[in-house]
Design a protein around this nucleic acid. Structure first.
Length: 155
DNA sequence: GCCAACGTTGGC
DNA sequence: GCCAACGTTGGC
């Protein structure tokens, strides 16, 4: 099993919205970055991922989700009316993919980026590097445990 | 709202 | 294939 971290702007899609979704499951659509897409293609069913809120007052980790469907074409890229529409992507040759994720847990408190930045074991994560824009990234078992310990401390 | 960082685009 | 211009991300 693999671990991941996935960013979303909470005004666009928050962990609360995921929790309220039918079957607490939703597609992770709208990714338009090749590196992030390639990570989604590597995901396996039941892989766990941190849900990260970005571009908000306190950015940080807010909960857990699991991968419930393997990568498949992102329909928002094929819909001209969608804001993520990409004319280069066609039903025959879709460029962009997404996975489905299912809500697992919302932490009692956010674990802020500021706290994550202090952890030496997380120094190598793109997440804590200045100017980082990668929205989906792998998390090593050590990094996962380090971050989980921080969320435990919040309880 | 600002701006640094970085990915993408397109002219050459 | 280079690289300048542009657009977007995302912390602050």
């Amino acid at each position: 099993m693999n671990y991941w971290l996935m960013k979303s702007e909470p005004t666009t899609f928050s962990i609360e919205m995921l929790e309220r979704s039918p079957n607490q499951t939703a597609p992770w659509d709208g990714v338009r970055n090749y590196q992030a897409r390639n990570f989604m293609k590597q995901m396996q069913i039941n892989d766990l991922a941190f849900f990260y809120h970005s571009s908000c007052k306190v950015p940080g980790i807010v909960g857990l989700m699991r991968v419930s469907k393997l990568a498949y074409p992102d329909f928002t890229a094929l819909d001209p009316k969608n804001c993520h529409y990409d004319p280069k992507s066609t039903p025959e040759k879709p460029i962009w993919e997404m996975v489905d994720v299912q809500f697992v847990e919302k932490f009692s408190e956010i674990t802020p980026l500021k706290i994550l930045q202090l952890e030496i074991h997380l120094n190598d994560m793109p997440l804590v590097r200045k100017g980082n824009r990668l929205s989906i990234m792998p998390v090593s078992p050590l990094q996962w445990q380090t971050m989980m310990n921080l969320t435990e401390r919040n309880k």
